[in-house]
Amino acid sequence: MTMESIISIKGLRKSYGTKEVLKGINIEVNRGEVIGYIGANGAGKSTTVKIMLGLVTDFEGEINILGQDIRSGDISYKSKIGYVPETAEIYENLTAKEYLTFIGELYGMDYTQVDEKAMKLMDLFGIGDVYNSRISSFSKGMKQKTLIISALINDPDILFLDEPLTGIDANSVMVFKEVLERLAKEGKTIFYSSHIMEVVEKLSSRIILLNDGQIVADGNIDELKNTSMASSLENIFNQLTGFNDHEDIAEKIVAVIKGVE
């Protein structure tokens, strides 16, 4: 199998004011890889994704997506991308049908084609009956499913998923994980950010761990386990982010709960 570079990040730096959030990131992603992109809160994960999507434009370094420099002004690469944002932003006063057809059309799809596709996907995700209802009336899980559908509707080559499983029930999670695995086999590239280590460990073919704006680990799960001598991704995460006083803190918390000094 030939390695085809889908995403190439070189020397990426980004500051907000005086605070440097990304301190020189280098990543090469190949077709079909499922990247588990993890890190503590504020490590710079979302910023990286936002830069790749062109939502944040002032940065240092070079980024090529699908062979295209994202700063060239040509934004056609975005039509090959699907995105589930962590903040779950959505126009809630639209119905699912209105929202999904709108997004599809922005991707350049034909109205009737999106409509049909969206309805089928809603059905398969078990929320077909609310296709014509306003999103504001949806539960958390239903909203999240709608977002996921909006990210998949254009059959993207690259998927950026930021905590995509929030609020989704276990059965649907199983379906969605299976879908991701199949999409990866089809040659789609997936960039998966989450705090739930078990899911990341199971899904990802490669894990990139970000700490304080720098990559501190990059490899598949077995490699990481071998080098760090840890049994699970959770432990690796704790080790590499330098967090090892969880027992101590837990003890203090329990003490405060019980009201003893």
């Binding site: 999507l53 062109g54 939502l55 934004i75 991308i81 995105y83 932003e89 997004i103 922005l106």
Partner: peptide
């Protein structure tokens, strides 16, 4: 509206 940026600029729209 911050949603505009998140929802729309991530699509192929300049």
């Amino acid at each position: 509206d911050l949603r505009d940026k998140e929802i729309l600029l991530s699509k192929p729209i300049n």
